[in-house]
Simulated scan of single mutants.
Amino acid sequence: MFEYHGWVTVRERADAEDDEDFAVEQARLWRLVEGIEERAREFAGHGLVDVRWINGEPFLHLGGFSNHTYPGILAFFREVGVRAPGSYGLLYVHDEEDRVHADGFVVHRMVRGQVSVHEDAHLSPCIPVLEDPWLS
C-alpha cells in the first residue's frame, strides 16, 4: 500500500513582499499557480490534489491511498518547489514497498522550495503505533 498526506503553502519567493509592486507580484503568483493547477489536474482520479486560494494565499493539499508506490506524486511535490521556490510544506508517505521504511512514514519536507527526506517520529513504526501486530 502507498498512503500520502501533505500540504504546501505556495510562494513565489521567500523574501518580504514589496507593497509598491504588490499588483505585479500577485499577477505573477496567479500565473505560477495556474501552472501548478494545470499539472494537478493530471493527477485527477489518483487521490486528492487540491489547489485553493485562502485569504489571498495559494495552498496545495495532497492525499491518497493506492495499492502500489506512486512516484508521480513525489515528483509533483518536488516540482512545486522548483516552480515556486519560496514554498514550504510537508508530505507524509507510507510506502509498504519501500525496503528501508516499509513499516513507517517518511516525511518529505519542503523549505524555500527545496525538498529533503526525514524519518517520521510521530506515526512510526506503524506496528505497534497505529496498528496491532498480527497474532499467529
Results as ranks from 00 to 15, higher is better:
132 D>F: 00
80 V>H: 00
26 Q>G: 08
10 V>L: 03
85 P>V: 09
77 F>Q: 05
130 L>A: 13
8 V>K: 10
56 G>T: 05
94 H>F: 06
90 L>W: 10
1 M>V: 10
44 A>S: 04
126 C>I: 09
19 D>E: 04
136 S>G: 14
38 E>G: 05
52 R>Q: 11
99 R>Q: 15
110 M>R: 02
105 F>R: 11
51 V>Q: 01
98 D>E: 04
76 F>G: 00
126 C>H: 03
5 H>G: 03
72 G>T: 00
116 S>F: 10
56 G>F: 09
28 R>D: 08
66 S>Q: 15
93 V>M: 02
45 G>Q: 07
110 M>I: 03
24 V>H: 06
10 V>F: 00
14 A>R: 15
26 Q>V: 13
9 T>E: 02
45 G>A: 05
16 A>W: 14
56 G>Y: 14
68 H>G: 06
28 R>H: 03
124 S>L: 02
116 S>T: 14
44 A>L: 12
123 L>R: 15
97 E>Q: 13
54 I>Q: 13
20 E>L: 08
62 L>V: 15
36 I>R: 04
57 E>W: 02
85 P>H: 14
87 S>N: 03
62 L>H: 11
92 Y>C: 13
35 G>N: 10
56 G>L: 12
81 G>M: 04
94 H>Q: 07
94 H>G: 03
62 L>N: 06
61 H>L: 06
29 L>Y: 05
129 V>A: 12
37 E>R: 12
59 F>S: 02
59 F>A: 06
102 A>R: 01
44 A>P: 09
113 G>W: 09
78 R>D: 11
96 E>F: 10
8 V>Q: 05
127 I>D: 01
69 T>L: 07
63 G>L: 00
92 Y>K: 13
31 R>A: 08
32 L>Q: 02
59 F>V: 10
121 A>G: 13
94 H>A: 10
84 A>P: 01
114 Q>F: 13
130 L>N: 15
97 E>H: 09
46 H>E: 11
73 I>A: 08
80 V>A: 03
46 H>F: 14
65 F>C: 14
14 A>C: 07
60 L>P: 09
97 E>D: 11
33 V>F: 09
124 S>D: 14
43 F>T: 11
69 T>F: 07
73 I>G: 01
49 V>A: 14
27 A>C: 09
28 R>Y: 08
94 H>P: 07
24 V>K: 01
56 G>E: 03
124 S>Q: 01
101 H>D: 11
112 R>H: 15
70 Y>D: 05
85 P>R: 02
102 A>M: 04
57 E>C: 11
49 V>G: 03
84 A>L: 05
36 I>A: 04
77 F>I: 12
121 A>E: 13
94 H>T: 13
96 E>M: 05
34 E>S: 15
55 N>T: 13
98 D>A: 02
130 L>E: 15
77 F>M: 05
102 A>N: 06
109 R>P: 00
